[in-house]
Write a protein that binds this DNA or RNA. Sequence first.
DNA 1: AGCACA
Length: 475
Amino acid sequence: MSTSTQHQFRYTQTPSKVLHLRNLPWECTDDELVELCRPFGKIVNTKCNVGANRNQAFVEFADLNQAISMVSYYASSSEPAQVRGKTVYIQYSNRHEIVNNKSPGDVPGNVLLVTIEGVEAGDVSIDVIHLVFSAFGFVHKIATFEKTAGFQALIQYTDADTAAAARNALDGRSIPRYLLPEHVGACHLRISYSAHRDLNIKFQSNRSRDYTNPMLPVNHTAIDGALQPVVGPDGKKIEPESNVLLASIENMQYAVTVDVLHTVFSAFGTVQKIAIFEKNGQTQALIQYPVVTTAATAKEALEGHCIYDGGYCKLHLTYSRHTDLNVKAFSDKSRDYTVPQVPAVPWQNPQAGPMYPGTAPALQGQVPGGQMLSWDPAQQTATPSYVSAPGTYPSHTYAAPPTPAYPTAAASSPIAQSNPLVHNASSMGITQPGIPLNVNLQPGGASPSVPASSPLMQASPIAGASPPAHQPYFS
DNA sequence: AGCACA
């Protein structure tokens, strides 16, 4: 026969219902493979992206004759098999079935396994996850957990098609920044399929939800018992309040010292303790108030605002799981204002050295690094205009200004007494000439809520008064 | 352009 003589090579391999395809375009998809092969029969399995160049694949037909028909067709066809315009070479595979074709995560199902990279469990609330994945269909259930792979979530949809749509759209994408805490960087979603069909959600908790059963009991122990092991806004409303705030400081172009924080947070009540520390390369601070309500007021008022103009040192506030900080009474990273302290004795930072003039109030006077907080009461009282920005910050967002009740030196602190916040609840700005200290009114930083003509902006020490004062800290 | 270990 002419065919046997002309195409002997085609019969050097025993036919198999598994075909080996090569010279595929890079990272050819299952769909493209199926599209090419489906005309010849039912495809029961595929394996893409095989080989060093990931340009080979296997296709397994349900029936041997289907594979034969495909090989035969392209053996005599004037048009070669093509994917994306690239000629694909087809042979019988030397195996007769595709074994272990897919990792379990590649087997489609109605439940997605989502790995949220680059975040801690507390950074992405279950509500945010629900919001993101609800775009593709009704989310039945969500379970989140932490494994070695990181923070993961199981998302249950009605069917595999919905799950696939969500996977195709979101795999490799990121949760929008505006849904995440400020301190979170890039956060990529890695999505595969779970082998689960129906998640067994026992409680509505900060870690799991069953949206098909709103009556499911809320597991408070899961929240309270864990005492909120996470630092981020975990489930927004679910986050238990605390008298201790956790502040993440973003875009810290200028030093944020204990004193600076004390000034800012004292506007809402007595600050008992402060601790500054680094976590994941980010400066964070814990600020302890006597009571939850004060912390809540401060959190509400300061969240998203910047200590300095220009989007510098933006505060992101959550409730800490701590209720009573154990900090050194005096260090450059912590302060305990509840222990009796003698204002007359200047505190000297051994690291920064005694570089402040004697005119500085003892407790507030020094900032490590040499920056001075030189209080001038006359200036304070003479500069109320720029700290008042009516309308930009509703006064009703916090309660009646608390009276600072410092047990010791703080009671006479010029900050507390002259703090415009204490007297004028419409503003949170605290600006000192020469002192990089005003909480501007730009939640989110990017969208200015303060008009350019805002007196606050004009009065910003960054904007004009004394920019060099900040330079020693960095760069 | 020539066979897979997820």
